[in-house]
Design a protein around this nucleic acid. Structure first.
Lengths: 249, 249
DNA sequence: TCAAATTTTGTAAAATCGTGCAACATACCT
DNA sequence: AGGTATGTTGCACGATTTTACAAAATTTGA
């Protein structure tokens, strides 16, 4: 591992995630924490990132800060993503929505598998082009400043011409009666279109978001094929979903 | 093994893998490490690759680079970008290609101006969505791993439906006779399409890239409306271009 | 305030780099 | 062909850089 590769990795990671932990990078790149510390110092001097106690954050100020619960939920999301990775196989065509869980999924894709991903999410796309084999196609459109995804007619039109093997749906709330719901109407439109463009819909969500609902409905629970959470499939919270016919992982 | 053969091997390897280790090449080609070291130094001076401690990485992957001479060039790019900003006005429709100069331009846009940008560049789009007022539309398509832009039919098709007031063309070499040229054929296709979708083409380039050319031609010099470099418009290097009718800034 | 985590500082081992030099090959000239 | 000039290669050596480990100092959060 060349030093410059670490630099690239770190800057890229900060760009995508807005924050990185020193210990995470050290473990991921298999070098000592001291080395990463030196890297962070150097990149800070270059102004590429801003080093802080315990890691680094983006040097350019950002609109939205990460909430406490999001940091807490990160390990859950990582668990979920690692389960989702197992659904990938050589030469499959994947559709990925936005959200931090999907971003984590993109990061965890093994280096030696080759397939194609369509996504309207800017961070997910940034993460995917760092992968040596995955072909990434960005679904263009008007970019939402907070969700960092393409929305609107262009994106939906592109989706209508496409059929993917599997859709990984990131955020969203799932409730037995209300179904899959979202806060933003335009996001709902996009997700509806995504579901129609995929043979199979896999919802990735932390258990917090189960049995809660938002303003607008994307689809009924029964239209989701697979649900991946950090809980064991036998957990009592999930039993009603299994009875509805969802595959649980 | 001829020296040129080694050169080709190394450049090719860097192009494919984005990185090479000095020791690996030496072992693979059965020559001493010193020889490879000399090769790397030479190729670095030619700008074909970027030599780093322990090996080399792709020079086109210079988005997050830090080398002295590139920092020097960065100041130029910043100068150029600040000149280009003045061409923006309220409610205009802008098309931006990729490259670090355009990225710098995106960074320097004042907070209080509102307009619309179309771009196929992932880094430029990331930068633009941090702006409070600018509406950003991403031109989707297959993503190039090294240039980090959308290429191919999708992108070109989207461009064909669109007419922008002004196009900021980032990278590329400009020569009086050869015109505007590029190394990569697919990028050439994209840039041609971009030019057709804009009323006016503004080329942003550091003076290093003037009077040099690459493999493929995008257009003739006369088809460019405005040229922005870090030099004064009265500089002798630029006089022939003014005589061709280009506006110089 | 205390304990845990993180940073700083110093150090030693390993890897890498630059340089001079001799051996060899190639190009050029007579 | 012979000789000279030029360029290339591999090796040796010291200088420099990079890295990991350890101990002390500092910061963080409860």
């Amino acid at each position: 591992m060349l030093r410059e590769e670490r630099y690239n990795y770190i800057v890229n990671e900060v760009k995508i995630r807005n924050r990185v932990l020193l210990t995470d990078i050290a473990r991921k790149l298999n070098v000592s924490e001291d080395t990463i510390r030196r890297d962070l110092n150097h990149l800070d001097e270059q102004g590429k990132i801003k080093k802080v106690h315990g890691g680094a954050i983006s040097s350019s100020f950002h609109l939205y800060s990460y909430r406490e619960d999001q940091i807490y939920a990160h390990e859950h999301k990582s668990t979920i993503a690692s389960k989702a990775v197992k659904l990938l196989h050589e030469n499959c065509v994947v559709l990925m929505s936005g959200g931090t869980t999907n971003l984590e999924l993109a990061r965890l894709i093994p280096d030696n598998i080759r397939f194609t991903v369509f996504t309207p999410s800017l961070p997910v796309a940034m993460q995917l082009i760092a992968h040596p084999l995955v072909e990434t196609i960005f679904i263009g459109g008007r970019l939402s400043k907070d969700a960092q995804i393409a929305l609107g007619g262009d994106a939906i039109r592109t989706l209508s011409h496409l059929k993917a093997d599997i859709l990984f749906m990131g955020t969203g709330n799932l409730d037995l009666d209300s179904g899959l719901t979202e806060f933003d109407w335009e996001v709902v439109q996009l997700k509806k279109a995504m579901m129609e463009s995929a043979k199979k819909t896999v919802v990735l969500t932390i258990s917090e978001k189960i049995n809660s609902s938002q303003r607008f409905k994307i689809c009924a629970t029964s239209e989701v094929h697979t649900l991946i959470t950090e809980l064991e499939p036998s957990h009592s919270l999930l039993i009603p979903f299994r009875e509805k016919g969802l595959e649980l992982i």
